[in-house]
Computed example of a mutant assay.
Amino acid sequence: MRLRLQLFEFEDLPWFPAVIRAGMMDYLRFMISSLRTYQPIVPLLREALHATGQQRLVELGAGAGGGTEGVVLALRRYPELRKLRVTLTDLYPQPAAWQLLQQRNAPAIDFEPAPVNALAVPPALTGFRTIFSAFHHFPPAAAEAMLADAVRQNAGIGVFEGAGKHWLEILLAWTVLPVAQLLITPFIRPFSFSRLFFTYVVPLIPLFTIWDGTVSILRMYPPGQLLALAHRADPGQRFEWQAGKVRHRWGPEVTYLIGRPRPA
């Protein structure tokens, strides 16, 4: 599917209730972590970290941190990355979810409690930048600005979307995943009565998840469009860019873009 529609997602709207957004983010984190969605990109990210000499990741648009834990723990198994750390950031910070990840994985995971604009990352937040399951939220001009900011600050960046942009995935978003959400919600931590209420009594979290999940797939950039954005963001060709898809052994795909400074 090459079609990309710039529709809206409710979680992007400033007025959207924080309790509903948090419930949706918690579900996404649980699913991504349980399914180990981003394990196929671990070798790619290891290579990029080796090439840039980095021992720190700065995750942009982290949401509830769904893509983080499994990837960081897998990377830290490599001898040269045993001291790797990741700092979670977001324009809408999720400290309750992040504190859980930090406590479980200290010192591998920490977070920035203040809002961080992915299009203008504070210079103090140094490291290789990553963005999991969130790049599609940005329209082309903003997506290009995010990449340009990484180039401007000479910070490598990896963009990862846990889907391959297929009509089948939209069908799953309307059928299998809502059922899964109803089954797993009681097991999501940290425990929240509001999450249960807005899932089972007033089912706003599942309904908004269906809409946002569908729109997420329609808004995704395929590899060719990711490369085009990168080349516009880096007219001086200061970075090396690669884009593509990698597949799980059990079927699903991850779409990626990786950019790193060219060797001096």
Results as ranks from 00 to 15, higher is better:
residue 79 P to H: 01
residue 214 T to W: 01
residue 12 D to E: 08
residue 4 R to Q: 09
residue 221 Y to Q: 07
residue 65 G to W: 01
residue 38 Y to T: 07
residue 181 Q to I: 13
residue 41 I to M: 13
residue 95 P to C: 13
residue 171 L to F: 13
residue 26 D to K: 14
residue 36 R to Y: 09
residue 260 R to A: 05
residue 224 G to D: 13
residue 193 F to H: 09
residue 30 F to G: 03
residue 125 L to C: 04
residue 185 T to E: 15
residue 48 A to Q: 14
residue 177 L to C: 06
residue 241 W to Y: 06
residue 161 E to S: 03
residue 140 P to W: 00
residue 259 G to V: 04
residue 109 I to N: 00
residue 223 P to V: 06
residue 214 T to F: 02
residue 176 V to F: 12
residue 110 D to Y: 03
residue 97 A to W: 02
residue 48 A to T: 14
residue 120 A to P: 00
residue 186 P to W: 04
residue 243 A to C: 07
residue 64 A to Q: 05
residue 13 L to H: 08
residue 183 L to M: 15
residue 153 Q to L: 11
residue 87 T to N: 10
residue 242 Q to G: 15
residue 187 F to E: 07
residue 189 R to D: 08
residue 244 G to L: 08
residue 67 G to Q: 08
residue 153 Q to F: 01
residue 140 P to M: 03
residue 245 K to M: 13
residue 146 M to R: 01
residue 227 L to K: 07
residue 3 L to N: 02
residue 255 T to D: 02
residue 53 G to Y: 11
residue 208 F to R: 01
residue 22 A to V: 07
residue 201 V to G: 11
residue 57 L to K: 10
residue 214 T to V: 03
residue 98 W to P: 05
residue 175 T to F: 03
residue 22 A to M: 05
residue 251 G to S: 11
residue 18 A to H: 10
residue 105 N to R: 01
residue 50 H to N: 11
residue 44 L to T: 07
residue 38 Y to N: 05
residue 111 F to W: 15
residue 38 Y to M: 08
residue 177 L to S: 09
residue 72 V to K: 03
residue 193 F to I: 12
residue 228 A to K: 12
residue 64 A to C: 09
residue 87 T to K: 12
residue 73 L to C: 10
residue 32 I to Y: 03
residue 95 P to V: 12
residue 148 A to E: 14
residue 138 F to V: 06
residue 129 R to C: 12
residue 67 G to H: 05
residue 26 D to T: 13
residue 123 P to H: 14
residue 140 P to C: 09
residue 124 A to H: 12
residue 225 Q to L: 12
residue 214 T to K: 02
residue 21 R to Y: 01
residue 93 P to H: 13
residue 262 R to M: 03
residue 241 W to Q: 07
residue 218 L to N: 00
residue 241 W to G: 08
residue 125 L to S: 05
residue 19 V to C: 10
residue 138 F to N: 02
residue 108 A to V: 06
residue 74 A to E: 07
residue 196 L to W: 15
residue 24 M to W: 02
residue 132 F to G: 03
residue 100 L to M: 13
residue 34 S to F: 04
residue 137 H to Y: 05
residue 151 V to A: 01
residue 201 V to N: 09
residue 86 V to G: 07
residue 243 A to N: 08
residue 192 S to K: 03
residue 258 I to M: 15
residue 230 A to P: 02
residue 185 T to F: 04
residue 133 S to I: 05
residue 5 L to F: 08
residue 81 L to M: 15
residue 204 L to I: 15
residue 215 V to F: 00
residue 33 S to M: 11
residue 91 L to V: 13
residue 126 T to E: 15
residue 226 L to E: 04
residue 246 V to P: 06
residue 161 E to N: 09
residue 69 E to I: 09
residue 110 D to V: 07
residue 154 N to F: 00
residue 115 P to A: 11
residue 99 Q to F: 08
residue 107 P to G: 02
residue 106 A to E: 15
residue 129 R to L: 15
residue 219 R to G: 00
residue 17 P to T: 06
residue 4 R to H: 04
residue 129 R to H: 11
residue 191 F to V: 14
residue 215 V to C: 01
residue 140 P to F: 06
residue 226 L to N: 03
residue 198 F to C: 05
residue 240 E to I: 13
residue 150 A to T: 00
residue 205 I to E: 01
residue 158 G to N: 11
residue 93 P to Q: 12
residue 125 L to T: 06
residue 213 G to I: 01
residue 91 L to F: 08
residue 49 L to N: 06
residue 206 P to N: 08
residue 259 G to P: 03
residue 112 E to L: 08
